[in-house]
Design a protein around this nucleic acid. Structure first.
Length: 622
DNA sequence: CTACGCGGGA
């Protein structure tokens, strides 16, 4: 009992207050290094392998002390078996930090292995990764040299902490101790840099200087690129592998597929599936899930279902991937049915599954169902809603035009709303004409997140809607002063194994003339069919004719013109956008699908729009 | 005088 109480006190002292380091250095008698008999170690090992709780651990610890059998394995095995239990890690770690004050722990061996174990254990925790760094420093202050195993553990922690400077320091330290030439250390280094804000390019430098690369190195780099949204670079790396004749493994494929999903690169994704088969890369459950996700995010639910049905084993991720795909298409009813099917298969539900489900309800306008599932989530499944779930609900009400409900919901939610939720609210208020509230929230958002570009865009659009042009230009000036740039609209098309990007208002290098002629022609054809430009979408203080020109420069229209020019007649056109589709482009694309008899699939920031015969699958609800 | 290490999916 006492041991437990003491541990808690020690721990709080250890980690919540600074002076622990001083405590250490003033008392520092050099740690005693005593090698024990192997038998003793074996004994404690077997004892500890049965240990599964903190109480048991303290009992065994006491027993070991009494028999004088305490050596490294105590910490070692305890950590490797129940490293997720923070209390146990803290307990064992406190034995290490305090043992030299206590005569009974004199047998404890201080070596790199011991510290590695602690560092690994803390690196694997969710909340206490910084303690891994603490113990690394402690190790150094004990003059115990790290070994090559130390860095992968430590870098895992710094990857999770996402602190660039920390990663840099560790990098320097690894250099100093001469472990920077170890392949594992290098791979983890690339990964750690990739995880830090603004670290991908440094990671690439490390990567480029590596004399030997393994599939792990490639996966780390490709995964790093796709995680920060630089999927084009990720694909580029994959192409390099192909050119160099380097065969990736299943994890590499997952990284590549994730980039394909992000880009909506269906053809490349298909090719990767083919490649996996050809190269006999094991199609593990994770690989199949990545394939399902890729097909779903590329808008091909049928292919996603094909892979899904062919899987030998499925898990919650497989099911959720398909469901999210359906949600993105606005196929809410199917998604709900699919969810119920998953339930009947006895799959244990989790919080992500509910995010998918609630999104499905939201995109299909199923307010009642959404509310129902939201309340059943806690009541029936004991899943505590996270901020994302609350966000889904606010979105659900907002999309359905129930501004009052949305506001009430935000008012009553038990956790503090985040900026995502506030932005959703701004949008619903803006559409419903409550501009004063929008302005208010928007100003507060700018105060909270002064570097977030979309907050300024929102406020500026609100002023445009209020016809307050001078206030609007103030916002623009403020942005300029702070060096914040509006993210331009961008549309992508995959054609003949190439990915083409169109940026709003962009002067195309090739085919510039041709594309703009095509845009004009499209305009004429559309008008003949009854299209009227939605000039109110243009939030600039210019005259009507210029507004029409501005609309024609939207990246989506450029991309469609390009596709009409370069693909075979009747072939479906697939476009991926970085922003949400604007009202005018939505209406125009409907006309184009009819006039040119093409199916046009547009994936915007949030969902799919399938344009066919002059109408859209979203039924103008988006 | 051995035990410890890297990348991935909704």
């Amino acid at each position: 009992m006492l041991a437990q109480t003491l541990t808690r006190r020690i721990c709080s002292y250890l980690f919540k207050r600074k002076p622990i380091f001083q405590t250490f250095s003033t008392h520092s008698s050099p740690p005693q290094i005593i090698t024990n008999k192997r038998a003793a170690e074996q004994n404690s090992l077997s004892l500890l392998s049965t240990c599964n709780s903190l109480t048991k651990l303290t009992q065994i610890h006491a027993h070991l002390l009494k028999s004088g059998l305490l050596t490294n394995p105590l910490v070692l095995t305890k950590f490797s078996s129940t490293s997720s239990d923070l209390n146990s890690i803290d307990y064992a770690a406190s034995i290490v930090t305090w043992s030299h004050h206590d005569h009974s722990h004199a047998h404890l061996i201080y070596d790199a292995f011991l510290f590695n174990t602690i560092i690994r254990a803390y690196a694997q925790t969710d909340q206490s990764k910084h303690r891994a760094v603490f113990f690394y420093n402690l190790m150094l202050s004990h003059s115990i040299s790290p070994n090559k195993f130390t860095y992968p553990f430590l870098l895992k922690a710094s990857a999770g902490l996402e602190e660039l400077n920390l990663t840099r320091q560790i990098h320097g330290s690894a250099l100093k101790f001469g472990f920077d030439e170890d392949l594992y250390v290098q791979n983890t280094m690339v990964h750690a840099y990739c995880c830090c804000v603004g670290g991908v390019d440094i990671a690439r430098k490390v990567f480029d200087e590596m004399p030997k690369l393994s599939p792990v190195s490639w996966s780390a780099m490709i995964g790093g690129y796709s995680r920060v949204g630089r999927s084009v670079d990720a694909i580029d790396m994959f192409r390099r592998m192909q050119v160099g004749g380097i065969k990736g493994d299943e994890v590499t494929m997952i990284s590549v597929l994730s980039a394909c999903a992000d880009l909506g690169a269906l053809e490349l994704g298909r090719w990767v599936e083919f490649y996996i088969e050809k190269e006999r890369i094991p199609n593990t459950i994770e690989v199949c899930n990545a394939l399902v996700d890729m097909f779903a995010k590329c808008g091909d639910i049928e292919e996603a279902m094909r892979v899904f049905r062919n899987m030998k084993d499925r898990n919650i991720v497989s099911w959720t991937s398909v469901m999210v795909g359906m949600a993105m298409q606005g196929r809410g009813k199917e998604a709900v049915t699919f969810f119920e099917e998953m339930k009947s298969h006895g799959v244990a539900l989790d919080d992500v599954a509910f995010i998918g489900l609630l999104t499905a309800c939201s995109h299909a306008g199923m307010v009642k169902e959404g509310c129902c599932y939201f309340s059943s989530m806690t009541r029936e499944y004991g899943i505590v809603p996270k901020i994302e779930h609350y966000g889904c609900m606010v979105d659900l009400f907002s999309r359905a035009g129930q501004a009052k409900k949305a506001l009430e919901f935000v008012q009553e939610m038990p956790i503090e709303p985040n900026s995502v939720i506030w932005r959703t609210l701004i949008n619903v208020c803006r559409v419903q004409g409550d501009l004063a509230i929008s302005e208010c929230i928007s100003r507060r958002l700018i105060g909270d997140e002064p570097m977030h570009e979309s907050n300024y865009v929102l406020l500026s659009n609100i002023y445009a809607k209020m016809f307050r042009w001078e206030k609007k230009s103030n916002v623009r000036n403020l942005m300029e002063k702070k060096g914040i740039r509006k993210v331009p609209g961008c549309s992508m098309i995959e054609l003949n194994d190439q990915i083409y990007e169109f940026v709003s208002g962009d002067k195309m290098k090739d085919q510039y003339e041709e594309i703009h002629k095509m845009v004009d022609e499209m305009g004429r054809e559309m008008r003949r069919a009854g299209y009227v430009p939605t000039t109110s979408e243009v939030l600039l203080d210019i005259d009507e004719e210029d507004k029409e020109d501005a609309l024609n420069l939207h990246s989506e229209k450029l991309a469609i013109a390009f596709a009409l020019l370069n693909s075979r007649p009747g072939a479906p056109i697939r476009i991926v956008k970085n922003l949400r589709v604007c009202g005018d482009c939505h209406s125009a694309t409907k006309f184009i699908s009819k006039v040119y008899n093409r199916e046009i699939l547009v994936r915007d920031r949030k969902r799919f729009h399938r344009f066919r015969y002059g109408s859209c699958s979203c039924n103008d609800y988006w």
